[in-house]
Amino acid sequence: MDDSKNRLNEKKFGRRTFLKRFAQAAALSSAASATGCIGLIQNNEMLQLKWKEYFKKNYRLMTPQEKEETVERLERLAKIEKHMDIQMSSQNPINGVLFGYAFNLTRCEGFMECVTACVKENNLDRQSHTQYIRIFEMEPGGMSPETGNGKYFHEVPLDNHFYMGVQCFHCENAPCIRACPTKATWKEPDGIVVVDYDWCIGCRYCMAACPYYGRRFNWSASQVPYNEITKKQHYLGNRIRPKGTMEKCTFCVQRTRAGKLPACVEACPTGARIFGNLLDPDSEIRFVLKHKKVFRLKEDLATDPKFWYFID
């Protein structure tokens, strides 16, 4: 079609005019692509990526290749939309690892370095002051955070007080998992309870089911300052959560599956936080469980948390 049209033009205008017009057209099109059209093409790419993202499967049903593809799409989208180079991982759990956590009530002095580190590492929404970790200032005589003060703004430690950190306890028998109507939250083989942020519909039934206030909701689009975003991300971990989905502590899956400690453990200045592999008999967490008197919160609910408190 195009060829015959060109030939027609050739006849009409003669060879010279044709060449001239051809050159003009070429110049025009390159100018167009240099300016507005690139935006259009990129916009088109963005739409395609978003389209594929919208119709993708639940993360647990994806093949390794599909996981790779969605991670690539999300990286590309971050590049197009936010001009940001992120590295997103879909690393699987390591065999023979079951994560557990212990909290030393004697050591914690309520500095909340863990909270700050967690907020930064996990790209938590700064606008609503989302915190995965809550620290309660407790008076002697009780062991339940309900009797403590979760909002203290003074110099710590306060005399005759102790401090109790609370976060998602990654229960073995987690009520939130049972509640979810779409199987958007589950327990990974390494014991971490995760949320597929892109599969969650935002009904918040898991939030009602959690007896530990371990879950948070994105009431609006999350806001993290551009240069404070942690760029090493995990699909199930600290990537920027979409509006209207649940999120929660993932034991810093992006760090712990790469052999590092969770941000809160690394940040704690007093060494009150202990994290490790429950299946490794030589791990610190196993030492604590064997040699300290430990307890867990609300054991009567049979949730079997993998988070223990102990007193030195």
């Binding site: 639940n58 779409t182 958007a184 969650c200 519909i201």
Partner: peptide, 20 residues
């Protein structure tokens, strides 16, 4: 209207989504 992500309500439909 209570859903945070109403556009993804199809995740509830067995077959194309998952009903737990």
């Amino acid at each position: 209207v209570d859903l945070g992500n109403p556009l993804k309500a199809w995740h509830l439909i067995p077959g194309i989504g998952i009903l737990n």
